[in-house]
Amino acid sequence: MDPIILYKIILAVVVFAVSLGVAAYMTWGERKLAAILQDRVGPDRAGPLGLLQPIADGLKMIFKEEFIPAQSNKWLFILGPSFFMLTACMTGAVVPWGSGLEIGGLYYPMQVTDINIGLLYLLGVVSIGVYGIMIGGWASNNKYAMLGALRASSQMISYEIAMGLSLIALVMTTGTLSLAEIARQQDEGLAYVVYQPLGFLIFLICAFAETNRAPFDLPESESELVGGFHTEYSSMKLGFFLFAEYINMFISSAVMATLYFGGYNFPFQHELGLEGNTLAIVQAVVLLLKIFIFIFIFMWVRWTLPRFRYDQLMNLGWKVLLPLALANIFITGLVMYFTGKLA
């Protein structure tokens, strides 16, 4: 077999495994961080520091009873969580995890696929991600699940627009839609957060809303909708819904780090005397560190801020973030025109 294809398959499996592994330990990290922020101890019974807790949780989920409500649509009920998980895992394919490895005279880029419309692919996958929730919520045939699904879909559509517009301003600066190229540009110049601070802020807020994280976790607001769209779910199907949320968080952290914070690059990386493969591996570790910082912010915000009211959520999305994103595009265009950067 062609070594490149073999390498791509291995890389895809590795990226998949890493996102699953990180997501599993994010559940542990979330509980631990929540506990620390609230002056508690958190999980510490399973293994040292409770490190085996995700395994225990996963086993519990798998061995719980599979329950499908009698009045529900069975196929769609199963399709919902599967689709949600699928879209969560798909985004990892376009993130560049490092510059590239050189083995046996061949150059292997550390990215599963460098498609030239990487950013659009990202937006596309994000926009179809809502189907998992909608199908699952509708198929449950439960009013709470239904309301949760409706909330999720309208919230995700609203914030997708501001997210796309904030990305357009970034694309104007970079002149490319390929994530690998954007990461490479930040090796030569500054990180793009310097050029697009407002764009980054809008993207960050939209990422919170798109991943259904607090303070935008209205689709599953426990206090009013029981469990939101996953009210009727049990066993590993529920696990898929909860787990996919963490994968989404991981991937959106990776995207934010890549687009705005230099990706796998770190300052003075070429002055350290690291060469080729060593540098690539160090770069991957640096990217993971950046991702962990973003994940920390995700969790930190969740355990600080209360949930928005629904009208506040819609106001923020349509009346604040959308005009801000449009203004950001306008300002970016003006600055580019006056600095003569327009091609």
Partner: peptide, 21 residues
Amino acid sequence: AILKGMLITLSHIFRKTPTVR
């Protein structure tokens, strides 16, 4: 206001937990 709240929660990282195992 958000930043203020976030700093409050952050300060709790350095507090001692009163939990008795």
